[in-house]
Design a protein around this nucleic acid. Structure first.
Lengths: 341, 341
DNA sequence: CTGAAAGCGCTAACAG
DNA sequence: CTGTTAGCGCTTTCAG
């Protein structure tokens, strides 16, 4: 029992005493339509409360005006900002967004579904690893896909933040401004290029200042909630614990702060802790996290626009690197008042 | 140039040397089909990598197998959990989910769009106020809608948490277990029934114990990030500030903690602060927030299921109240070890 | 058990 | 400027 009756184009045509093509014309104002007829049609439209069916139109046009957004976990603050970016851009272009937020092992299937069954016009992938062959094939067929935060090795529009640059700025702040030399690192998932780049930046900066990062100072995390805790403990259990800890993301940095506090330590006095991402949580830890901000909303927006562009003309796929900016709060050891920048 | 060629039902039919109706039959296995033909068809399907177009099917069936989820703000941790619930349930039923996360002033329009243009089969609304007349009309036409967290005064499946009960448990903990009598309250948006119920619960408990909540102890917030800060300051500026503060949600409670700390106070020693929702942030403040947990994932899941049910048979719309549970951490004054429950 | 044909709501040539 | 007509890909009677 659920077929609310919506007016169809035929009813509008009948009421306006014109043919359906004329109605279609005023709808899409393509050709010139006589002002009088146009008015009649428009009156009929409003009288009937008519709105064209997006999917009947989709069938005819072979364009669904729907885009798919696939991410491993939308509850992650970092991704949900992106969703907003994609959505706002989508709305502006009269698109709807189907979102798929599924654990990694399901993304491949959803990806396929969205494309084959749902016939989305394009896809935005973030933080997931799709099978390269699958992707390659779609690309070759000219299917518009934008990839965020991953370099998949296929020629698609790719959006990444400057992980190295951002991490480097943060590392320099730690090494130069604060003079730390013994710095630990909590890693993210091993399949994440961002993780590697952040670690490299830290290592480079340290080397440039005559220090190094011993193997035992690099402890494993997963980017996920809770994983910073055991990692931090491991660091704290070392004969000589680090003076500062760089966690691959804010979530783990927050875990690390809790872990330190549980051990009776007071960051940043006893140990400095910094993160990456600048999620909401970062402002609410005690002390607030010094971190690196990623422009996730903008990334989302631009990814959608890239898809749209690819849909219209076949651009050469760009790879854009967005700047990440240092956000200095207090967890690095800076005082609330004397914030450097 | 973006028309990846997908196989159509005709090609499958041709290859299997049957008619398209037969293909359709094996697809939906409705009628009996001869095993041999069935096999031929299935072989053709896999050979061609055929998948039926969801929206061509939608046109014929008048069912899009798409559901709309409308919320004011998906970056709010509380809502994003819900999205996951809706999505998981949707996938299980072979549905896709279009999400609309738009500021309040836009939701009405999106609501209308999703329904008229997108022809979604149903809608889940959370935390928004749609025009009652609009809604009423859709309902009467038998359009399936589930409403979360609002009582819209129309007969639709409604899912709310037991705000009163949850808040009451929290208030009793404050009043009975801790013995507080001077308790301040930071309100949420005035259009939110949850807000009112929470305040009422606090007031009732206080009264039952011979105390009251003076007008100046109720200060305005908006539920949104940052709004707890000025509210808390206002409370702290009072000649006699409260001993404890109940914020209408965790986000504002977190703001309140920061505000207190900025004033040189140390919660919960100098002032207790509690919230509502149990979002991720609640575990990471210092001290961690004592709060009330809402089962948002489950709410989302059940809301979708209600929509689906309404789609099939026309049930009488239920109104289900889900239990909220007290989560005791440290911001109320409990020590980490000696947690009551 | 299977095929032919109509129709879902809309767009897009092609003729007037 | 406007109407006719042929699809878009699928389901569904209605006949065999």
């Amino acid at each position: 029992m659920s077929k609310p009756k919506r007016a169809t184009i035929d009813e509008v045509a009948e009421r306006a005493e014109v043919s359906i093509s004329t109605v279609s014309r005023v709808l899409n104002n393509l050709d010139r339509v006589h002002p009088d007829t146009r008015k009649r049609v428009q009156d009929a439209i409003t009288a009937l409360g008519y709105e064209p069916s997006a999917f009947a139109r989709g069938l005819a046009l072979q364009r669904t005006h729907t885009i798919g957004f696939i991410t491993p976990n939308i509850t992650d603050a970092f991704y949900s900002e992106m969703v907003r970016g994609v959505e706002d851009a989508a709305i502006a272009a009269n698109y709807s967004m189907i979102v798929a937020s599924q654990p990694a092992h399901n993304t491949e299937r959803r990806f396929h579904q969205l494309f084959t069954q749902r016939r989305v016009d394009g896809l935005v992938l973030v933080g997931i690893n799709v099978d390269r062959a699958d992707l390659q094939q779609l690309i070759e067929q000219g299917f518009p896909i934008a990839v965020i935060q991953r370099d998949l090795g296929v020629p698609v529009p790719t959006f990444v933040v400057d992980n190295y640059g951002g991490a480097r700025a943060l590392a320099e702040h730690l090494v130069i401004d604060h003079g730390y030399r013994r710095i630990g690192y909590i890693t993210g998932g091993s399949d994440s290029p961002g993780n590697t780049q952040r670690l490299n930046a830290l290592r480079d900066v340290l080397r440039e200042h005559g220090a190094d990062i011993p193997p035992e100072y690099v402890v494993p995390g997963t980017f996920l909630r809770g994983s910073g805790d055991p990692a931090m403990r491991q660091l704290l259990d070392l004969p000589q614990p680090p003076e500062a800890v760089f966690a691959a993301n804010d979530q783990m940095a927050a875990d690390a702060i809790s872990a330190a506090r549980t051990r009776g330590l007071t960051p940043p006095h006893d140990i400095a802790i910094v993160g990456f991402d600048d999620i909401v949580l970062a402002s609410y830890t005690t002390p607030p996290l010094t971190t690196v901000r990623q422009p996730s909303y903008e990334i989302g927006r631009r990814a959608f626009e890239a898809v749209l562009r690819a849909l219209d003309d076949n651009m050469t796929p760009e790879r854009v690197v967005l700047p990440a900016s240092l956000v200095i709060r207090e967890s690095c050891g800076c005082s609330p008042s004397a914030r450097t920048s």
